[in-house]
Design a protein around this nucleic acid. Structure first.
Length: 265
DNA sequence: AATGCGAGCAACCGCGTTTGA
DNA sequence: TTCAAACGCGGTTGCTCGCAT
């Protein structure tokens, strides 16, 4: 079972890869292709396990791996797909070309869970899901709208109760492939419609439009009970930047959720 | 300038699944 | 059908770098 058996006589390297190791790996794969990682590890001259070689290639050296910050669209996709699939990082990564499961996992842990920690709530709770859906995702949509006047390949919609939606204006209609059977669609009307609070999916198999609200049982219901707070939140900027919300305000959300008999944490 | 600390990310580890002999 | 090897996924660790003191 051990990946290192058979090469136990050889001292295996660990830790950061050197340029020489990278070029060895790239060269070997150029000649022999991907796969058979243990064979590669034995034959390439690398003193690494097959696992290590595979990881290095897939997460860093592979030509189509994107580097750099995640775009608003990519962040939106991660939030949306995670709400549907949970920690299925590789599955989520399949829908973000050039991004790896490791990168997405790191994003979730360092950025998303950080927000949950600041709010002192469980990142797996419905409350946090509400906050993401009501404040973070609309903010990303705003950013996407602002930048999409140039160009955009992705887009979406989300389940935004009218009480939660911020002023989002769009001049564009976008579409992206979400998985084998579902196309996500977003159009401007979806947000302008006061009742436009649902996630719309267009089945590619039967072309029917379907309404779906992930986590619908808890979707922002707490907002309906507090118009004053709703106004406050709508008028507020909930992220100082890409990943930092105004924690004090979100703390109020938490309190309203708890006191208002919300879905709990 | 030196030190401490935290965020971000690359890499490792354990384990479940798949493959093929 | 069985079993060992290989593969892939998700959780965790630890290194690096930037910022604050």
């Amino acid at each position: 079972m051990s990946d290192t058996k058979g090469s136990s006589f050889m001292e295996l390297r660990r830790g950061p890869w050197t340029l020489e190791e990278d070029s060895l790996l790239i060269h070997y794969i150029a000649l022999h292709g991907e796969g058979r990682w243990n064979l590669l590890a034995r034959c390439s001259g690398l003193k690494r396990t097959g696992k290590s070689c595979r990881l290095r290639w897939l997460n860093y050296l592979k030509p189509d791996v994107k580097r750099g910050n995640l775009s608003a669209e990519e962040q939106f996709m991660i939030l949306e797909l995670h709400s549907r699939w949970g920690n299925r990082w590789s599955r989520i990564a399949q829908h973000l070309p050039g991004r790896t499961d490791n990168e997405i996992k790191n994003y979730w842990r360092t950025r998303v869970q950080k927000q949950a920690r600041q709010m002192k709530i469980d990142s797996n709770s419905s409350l946090f899901a509400d906050a993401v859906r009501c404040f973070w995702m609309p903010r990303l949509l705003e950013k996407m709208a602002a930048s999409s006047s140039s160009s955009s390949s992705l887009i979406n919609q989300t389940s935004l109760p009218s009480s939660c939606s911020t002023a989002v204006t769009h001049d564009h209609h976008h579409q992206y492939q979400a998985d084998e059977t579902v196309n996500y669609q977003y159009s401007e009307g979806g947000f302008d419609d006061p009742a436009g609070s649902q996630l719309l999916f267009k089945s590619s198999s039967n072309s029917e439009m379907m309404n779906e609200i992930p986590n619908s049982a808890s979707t922002c219901s707490f907002m309906d009970d507090d118009d004053e707070l709703g106004t406050l939140l709508e008028n507020s900027s909930f992220m100082d930047d890409d990943s930092s919300w105004l924690v004090d305000e979100l703390w109020h959300v938490r309190k309203v959720h708890e006191w208002g008999g919300g879905t709990g944490i």
